[in-house]
């Protein structure tokens, strides 16, 4: 199988990568770029743990071919805090409201929550629940997560 050259800007950093045409964006981010905050959990687009931001929109890394997003600006969970470690307000809220247990859904949850807040700075609780319903969490019962996003709602 022939490899293709693609260019991705991930969390502001430019990467030139040689990838197979069937390489998934999730695996390229995790294995070629080495950012493991994005998680593999179902591989079939049913849980949202692999959510990343591609050109400003949330995308499931396990359902996206890396070659299909050649040239894209990508943000992963590692790109959310400031370079000095200052947390994004939503990350801060996740700490305060006990939205984190095992942490495996957390990256995807924070990114889908950010997506909502970017599009609608003052979502209601039902708007929040509706927006994050594609992201599964097995530990928290979603209440802490909903509270965290609500806390950032203006």
């Amino acid at each position: 199988m022939k490899k293709y050259t693609i260019h991705l800007t991930v969390n502001g950093e430019k990467h030139t990568l040689e990838v197979y045409p069937n390489a998934l964006l999730l695996n390229v981010i995790r294995e070629d770029i080495g950012l493991t905050g994005t998680k593999y959990a179902c591989g079939t687009g049913q849980c949202g743990a692999c959510t990343v931001e591609v050109n400003g929109e949330p995308v499931l890394g396990c359902m996206t071919l890396a070659v299909a997003v050649d040239g894209a600006e990508i943000k992963t969970i590692e790109g959310l805090a400031q370079p000095d470690g200052t947390l994004d307000p939503l990350q801060e809220a996740f700490l305060d409201t006990n939205a984190v247990q095992c942490g495996f859904c957390t990256s995807g949850m924070i990114l889908i929550g950010k997506d909502l807040l970017n599009k609608n700075p003052s979502p209601s609780e039902s708007e929040i629940r509706n927006h994050i319903k594609g992201n599964l969490c097995r530990c928290t019962g979603y209440n802490g997560i909903t509270r965290a996003i609500l806390k950032c709602s203006k």
């Binding site: 992963t76 969970i77 947390l87 996740f94 700490l95 984190v100 942490g103 957390t106």
Partner: peptide, 12 residues
């Protein structure tokens, strides 16, 4: 907040 929560929200 639990001591392990920070690493989890940073994705680290």
């Amino acid at each position: 907040p639990r001591h392990d929560a920070w690493g989890k929200v940073y994705g680290e």
